[in-house]
Simulated scan of single mutants.
Amino acid sequence: MKTLKRIFYAILSLTIIAGAYGIAFGVPEQVAQLRGGSATETADAPQNARAGQRGQNRATTVVLTSLEARKYTLVLRTVGSAVSLHRTEVTASDAGEVVETALQANGMVEKGDVLLRLDDRTEQFALEIAEANRDQVQATVTRYEGLRSNGSSVVTDVALSEARVALRLAEANVGLAQVALNDRTIVAPISGRLGLTDVSVGDRLSSGDAIVTIDDTSSLLATFEVPERSIGLLTEGKQVLVSTPTYTGRIFEGEITAFDSRLDSVTRSATVQAKIENPDGLLLAGMTFAIRMTEETDPLPVVPATAITWNRSGAGIWIAEEGSTRRVPVTIRYREGDRVWVEADAPLGAQIVAEGAMKLRDGAQVTVAGARKGPGA
């Protein structure tokens, strides 16, 4: 029994193998002649059946859309801080005791307004002495010149010359005394807003001591960093849009005034300065700003993201022409949502495969399942 089973299984296996061979490669000529048919006809029968089935399924169903060109808006967002465009720190030019102040924090001052006065009694006395000496020398010069004009020989040319030199020295001493007296009064060098100060009447200041800061906040100078990839956005006079959490929803305008000529070796960014007009005085020096710059590119072909396919040579899109497709390489420039801006050697208005592109091969036949109006539509 075991021997019969083995023979049966062997015959069954040979039959299956022979059938598979005949289906795949056709029936041998000798066997076909025994069966009363040609090998070619026998072999062509299953192949023709398969070819007919492939012919029915060869066309790929895709969705097409027209190739359009649109501008892309480059947007750079960064943060920065600002200082007053015109600012100064007022310091004491001389030592002395404070006898009068007009330092009100956040108060507005005009250029030349008195901020404080130091004890100036010594300087006033020095000025009086210098003026008295000048007057005395002036009288001598006047008397000598009168004598000489009357033809008197009492006053020599040397004496008159020395008197005139003495007068010049006396006038210079008066000027020095006046400067020393003026230095006892500290005035605002610019117009602006006063900062906090701890100087009060009775304090004694040394030369060079800080008194108060003045900020002219009618214009601010914002400083921020721009990454290397966005250097092309930088031009002097370019508009920047500024916002701050302090005034939610409000946009302030400014323009670039200067930027660095080299990149930071660590951050790979360039430092940029922009002037921000602040006529209402709402913005304060030291605020942190969100800064935005925009620029529109030239029109570029734009396609749906689903239209992009990849192979060893890179990205590409499929163009449908007269029911068949061909692949066109593209260079991706920008992405935004489900849209991709590309550079491609393809005419605008061409029908491109928006969906179903992953199934395509060069020369593949396609049928249109639907149409899309455009990328992102």
Rank of each mutant, 00 (worst) to 15 (best):
T185P: 04
Q138G: 13
A270T: 12
T235V: 10
F25M: 05
L241H: 08
G192S: 01
G374V: 08
L300T: 00
S149A: 10
A350R: 05
A307Y: 06
V328R: 02
E236K: 12
E110N: 14
P46Y: 12
S207M: 11
A285Y: 06
G146S: 15
V240E: 05
S230E: 14
T60P: 04
D345G: 05
A350Q: 09
Q178T: 13
N48Y: 13
L64C: 01
V155Y: 08
T309K: 07
M293L: 11
S93Y: 06
S230W: 06
T367C: 01
A357C: 09
S152M: 08
E128W: 06
A24W: 12
L160I: 10
P329K: 07
G37W: 10
I211S: 00
G112T: 06
G376F: 05
S153E: 10
S313A: 12
R117M: 08
V75T: 15
T73I: 04
R58K: 11
R168H: 10
G192R: 04
L176M: 10
R229D: 12
L169R: 15
T61G: 15
R6S: 11
R372E: 08
A39N: 03
V368A: 07
A49N: 09
V272Y: 02
V90F: 10
A210S: 12
L67N: 00
T101D: 00
I308S: 06
R134P: 09
A18L: 15
T185L: 03
V79K: 12
A166E: 14
T88I: 08
R335V: 04
G232I: 09
A126T: 10
E295Q: 14
E236L: 09
A290E: 14
E225Q: 12
V62A: 04
T60H: 12
G376Y: 07
D298P: 04
L103E: 06
T73H: 07
E29C: 02
L74Y: 12
R326D: 06
V328S: 05
S200T: 15
G80K: 05
V109Q: 08
A364N: 01
Q273A: 01
S219K: 15
K5C: 06
M293G: 02
A92C: 02
V242S: 01
M1Y: 10
P28E: 02
V272R: 00
E171T: 15
L282P: 03
Q138L: 07
A139Y: 13
T244R: 03
R193T: 14
E336W: 14
T88A: 05
M108C: 02
Q273Y: 02
E162V: 13
V114I: 11
L118M: 04
T156G: 14
V75H: 13
P301N: 01
P28N: 03
R361D: 10
S153M: 09
L4Y: 08
N133H: 13
